[in-house]
């Protein structure tokens, strides 16, 4: 597990984003156990209170759940999982639009480029496997 932290953004927010990315890309599977507060703090070298805050927030958002004294787990709620995936895609699209729009390139040109790159990315992945 490796997170490159931005020093100007709350660390707990970055931890939550990391979990969402891992959930959306299936690196964390529904129902999978997550590390304890201390374990994660040690692994990514951050304050355990910060991990605690991230976990509390994720619990409130329904991303993780805890039963009794057992380790917390990734949610199995289909609605939540779908929402995480959608949020991740939407954030990426927003960022893309914000970067590209000021260049004022014709929309069709952008779409063509996007399609080409996307196909290349899929092919590239195919080669690796």
């Amino acid at each position: 597990m490796k997170i490159n932290f931005n020093r100007r953004e709350p660390v707990y927010v970055q931890v939550i984003r990391y979990f969402k990315q891992q959930i959306a890309t299936n690196m964390f599977e529904p129902g999978q156990e997550i590390p304890s507060r201390r374990e994660l703090a040690g692994e990514i070298k951050i304050n355990p209170n910060t991990v605690q805050r991230a976990y509390k927030e994720m619990e409130e958002q329904g991303l993780i759940y805890t039963e009794g004294n057992l380790p917390s787990k990734i949610t199995q709620d289909e609605q939540v999982l779908k929402a995480v995936r959608e949020e991740l895609i939407m954030d990426a699209v927003d960022e893309f639009v914000a970067t590209v729009q000021p260049v004022h390139a014709p929309f069709e040109e952008i779409i063509t480029l996007l399609q080409e790159k996307y196909e290349q990315a899929i092919e590239g992945k195919g080669d690796e496997q």
Partner: peptide, 10 residues
Amino acid sequence: EEIRAAEGKS
């Protein structure tokens, strides 16, 4: 964490 959240500062 508060200074990062409230002011976006390291």
